[in-house]
């Protein structure tokens, strides 16, 4: 099954294609005479593609635009410019009822299983609702809800209970069942395990991997936990201040990160092994992430870049003036840095 999916992935058109995506949020000042005071460039020129059956990991620190990217793909935030093609179709041109009907093919799993489930609905109603909303009820509704819950590791006996009766891990299973009941082909997982207890995270990560294999799903897996992302992803995109700075196969990103920011990020992730920790070279970045209201000119990372200091005057000027584009290195890695060969 997996082999077939992979084969298809290499020949067929990607399921999701994103081209120069920009999501800018205006910031208003004043209450009566509102005027635009500034623009938050949450996502500022992002391009990538996700093959069928693939998991693309999206990592970065708070405010880098990773969640906004996921929401834009779900058509949950207004897109400023760019293109999103889903299964070859121009997603941004869809409106109204056509868009609503299309939604069952792409679904989202959120971080907070406490906030994403309606506390007044039973588990059954929560999982059945999307089917009913899309007019896909039918006489076998109960069976389908039960078997999806079972598939997600929930005992179908609990079908008449309410979300507050469950732990975080179980609620996340309900949220996953709800997202998958419409048999979507593409799922955005936005920090799906960050709110869960350490001993529960592996259960949910394993479940997501299993469901992908069995149902042929395509994932965009958004998280700040690089170790979890690397565990589930085929390729990983690293974002910084609204742009992708590196996009590489997951196996490569730890072994030989190309972008100076990726290198710093990797070196900052603690490894649960004292010997491994003692042997590591740490790159501790100075300062904080600049505001996406006013990203630095040129390369957005240059004010914090550990490599910048050792560059010559001409090279430095280039970092200050010219925004580096994502370019392909010989070995399938893509990096947006003027000074990586």
């Amino acid at each position: 099954m997996l082999g077939r999916v992979m084969e298809e992935a290499s020949t067929a058109r990607p399921l999701v294609e994103v081209e120069d995506l920009r999501v800018h949020f205006p910031v208003y000042r004043g209450t009566v005479l509102k005027r635009k005071a500034a623009v938050v460039r949450a996502v500022d020129g992002v391009s990538f593609a996700i093959a069928r059956g693939e998991t693309l990991g999206l990592v970065g620190e708070s405010g880098c635009g990773k969640s906004t990217t996921g929401r834009a793909l779900m058509r949950l935030v207004p897109v400023t410019s760019g293109n999103i093609r889903f299964d070859g179709e121009d997603l941004l041109s869809l409106r109204g009822e056509v868009l609503r009907r299309k939604r069952r093919h792409f679904q989202m799993i959120f971080q907070d299983p406490y906030g994403s489930l309606d506390p007044r609905m039973t588990v059954f109603d929560i999982v059945a609702e999307p089917l009913l909303a899309h007019g896909m009820g039918g006489p076998d509704l109960r069976d389908r809800v039960q078997s999806m819950l079972e598939r997600c590791g929930m005992n179908p006996r609990y079908i008449r209970r309410y979300p507050h009766e469950f732990s975080g891990g179980q609620r996340q299973r309900v949220a996953i069942a709800r997202a998958l009941i419409l048999e979507p082909s593409f799922v955005v997982c936005d920090e799906p395990v960050s709110a869960l207890d350490v001993s529960i995270r592996a259960q949910v990560l394993n479940l997501l991997v299993e469901l992908q294999r069995d149902l042929g799903l395509t994932y965009l897996f958004i998280a700040h936990d690089l170790a979890a992302v690397r565990h589930v992803s085929d390729r990983i995109a690293v974002m910084y201040l609204g742009r992708i700075v590196e996009l590489s196969p997951a196996a490569e990103i730890y072994r030989r990160p190309a972008h100076p920011y990726t290198q710093a990020l990797i070196s900052a992730v603690p490894i649960p092994d004292p010997r491994a920790e003692a042997d590591r070279q740490r790159i501790v970045l100075e300062g904080d992430v600049p505001s996406p209201l006013a990203p630095p000119r040129g390369c957005r990372f240059h004010p914090r870049c550990p490599r910048f200091a050792s560059l010559g005057a001409v090279q430095k000027a280039r970092c200050r003036e010219e925004e580096p584009l994502l370019r392909v290195l010989g070995d399938g890695r893509q990096v947006a840095c003027h000074h990586v060969d």
């Binding site: 995270r201 170790a227 690397r230 730890y254 990797i266 490894i271 092994d273």
Partner: peptide, 8 residues
């Protein structure tokens, strides 16, 4: 220890 994903 067995349930935590490791970067390495």
């Amino acid at each position: 220890l067995a349930s935590v994903p490791r970067l390495d």
